[in-house]
Amino acid sequence: MTQITDNFRYWILIMPALAIMIIFYIYPVLGIWQISVTEPEAGFGNYVRMVDSSAVRTSFLITFRVAAITTVGCLILGYIVAYTIANFASRLTPLMLALVLLPFWVSVLIRSFSWIVLLGRSGLVNDTLRDMGFIDAPLRLMHNELGVLIAMIHVMLPFAILPMLANMRGISDTYVKAARGLGASEWTAFRSVYLPQTLPGVMSGVLLVFVLALGFYITPALLGGGRVLMISEYITYQIQEFLAWGLGSALSVALLIATALVLLIAARFVNLRSILLDRK
């Protein structure tokens, strides 16, 4: 009896947050499905148009390509930073960590703005190169996939570094020492002993970056200049320019399903619970 009333009290603590999340978030997000099959007319017309449209196909292709390249870039660059912070302790280690956290706390909007200032036609990179006589005409560093990728990798890097670092800090150095003692070179010990132990951290970093990159809007919209239409920007474009709510909603459902599929596939290889729910 007391157990039942206790459980009831625990649910009183849980309910307010859970209720507003379900009513004001889950319900409207699921409601998008309804818009996609009722506007402009009932039926699956929007989905037919979506599948038939080559612009939509291109947009999905760009989205997955940008997300994949961003993920690989973040993985490689982030691994080097995480490895150094975790394994070469020095007086500068706290500084290195602070330098990872600083951009993490600065808003994506500001970081994208910095890249516009740097990469624009008369941006600082082009101006400097011209003043130094390296180039005559400005390079196209922005309003193309290159600019989007540079800024996306910059924005996403901390999301790759932090989980990898958390994982590396839990790895004991005895195995690498044993391998070294048995005659393995530093590179061999790293490749065949250390690297495999870091795979869980790598997988969480990869998953976080990929899922976030799939739905990213701000950076591609600002750096892409309308030429790198990732699916999120394509959706707003449909809605704001053409008031095509039905098609925009159908695309949203498709993006949502794509994200869910990535998570479901990832769940077969990694422990989603420890990556998402029990994050430190």
Partner: peptide
């Protein structure tokens, strides 16, 4: 799990909702 859904849903999709 329900409470962390907003981390995973693309911003534009939730804004639409």
């Amino acid at each position: 799990w329900i409470l962390i859904v907003p981390i995973l849903v693309p911003p534009v999709v939730q804004a639409l909702g």
